[in-house]
Design a binder for these strands. Structure first.
Lengths: 192, 192
DNA sequence: TCCATAAATTGACCGTGGTCACTTTCATAG
DNA sequence: CTATGAAAGTGACCACGGTCAATTTATGGA
């Protein structure tokens, strides 16, 4: 039997309810009980649509990041580290709005633990593809595979965001830290 | 009033009970209720000793990693990427024994969210110090600060471990992936 | 030795994510 | 139109981390 319209409607109601709650209380404060109450369905229904609360978070947060990537994909390949950072900063802002959000992203960044690949993991793949294309067509080091360079950018991104939440967060901004990382990674000068 | 002997004993009982449970059921399966039952104390006592279950995990896992660092600190500075990997692999094994363990490490790697710096976060600082010393005294690139190089090694380490848990885990071992990263990061050849 | 005070411990209780046997609704065949 | 089986939905229930007012135990001064 095919998927029923009812199913899609219920799912949409759940997602909308969640988004509304998040809009005025943030991600961390989201409660499944509130979502089902607002959506007008039973608790069990929620878990028929999402494996667990985390799966809803993955869907919602992944969706937001995909929207950033939609923007980013329209851009011309950047010609400097600075232009790369201009492109990335908006999504950094989103990812660091709440520590909880960053934790969800971290947990899902290494792709799906089981079977299906989640929305957030997909964004990392997409990010890698775009970045590799950019790096291959920009004035950056040529001694290594662009895919590897992109991989590294991803690693440094996680690092810079994680350090942002440090108490030993010695006043260095995410952008400045990323700039240091990317200059060393994409434009090495091992002459002396 | 000074801290009582009773306190130290209770804390030791809790930790020992936890370690025993973990020894034969792993970290993920640990339940606070089991720990307090084995230790012969009430549930509330546990939370008088540890802020939450995560704090116990931080203590236990951080302790294990510190033990690895004790070994590592006795070594001579490595003379190649391969020797660096020899030194790091044992702790990689520990960190990837359970996905749960890696998640705890990830969550605490960016140092303490509040006030006090935790055991795991401390290991990252220690790791950075040792690695910076090594890199400064080995045959690696000289165009950037050793501390920055060490920072990067940390970032790539997280990345390599995270990818290990991918479903799209295309058969590349952690060591091989790390080797690729470190060669590109520590020994760039941007000639051509 | 006894009292006052602080420290340590207790366990009933709560919040919240997640389960599952059961009911309701839908789609299709006859 | 009705019977039938599958899909969707229900809500009482459970597991487990975490709280807190009340109680017990230690300590140091009189």
């Amino acid at each position: 039997m095919a998927v029923q319209t009812r199913t899609l409607k219920t799912r949409a109601k759940l997602i909308e309810a969640a988004q509304n709650r998040i809009k005025d209380a943030g991600y961390e404060a989201l409660r499944v009980e509130d979502v089902v109450k607002d959506a007008g369905v039973a608790k069990g229904t929620f878990f028929a649509h999402f494996k667990d609360k985390d799966a809803l978070m993955d869907h919602l947060i992944g969706g937001e990041i995909h929207a950033f990537l939609d923007e980013v994909e329209l851009m011309e390949p950047p010609k400097s580290v600075d232009e790369i950072l201009d492109a990335l900063m908006p999504s950094f802002e989103f990812m660091t709005q709440e520590r909880f959000v960053f934790d969800v992203i971290l947990r899902h960044s290494g792709a799906a633990q089981n079977s299906e690949i989640g929305a957030i993991a997909q964004t990392f793949i997409r990010h890698g593809t775009v970045m590799a294309h950019w790096l291959a067509h920009g004035p950056f080091r040529k001694d290594i595979d662009p895919a590897l360079m992109a991989d590294g950018v991803g690693a440094f991104q996680i690092q810079a965001l994680a350090l942002h939440f440090c108490t030993a967060h010695n006043g260095i901004s995410i952008r400045d830290r990323m700039e240091t990382y990317l200059n060393a990674w994409l434009l090495p000068k091992p002459s002396g």
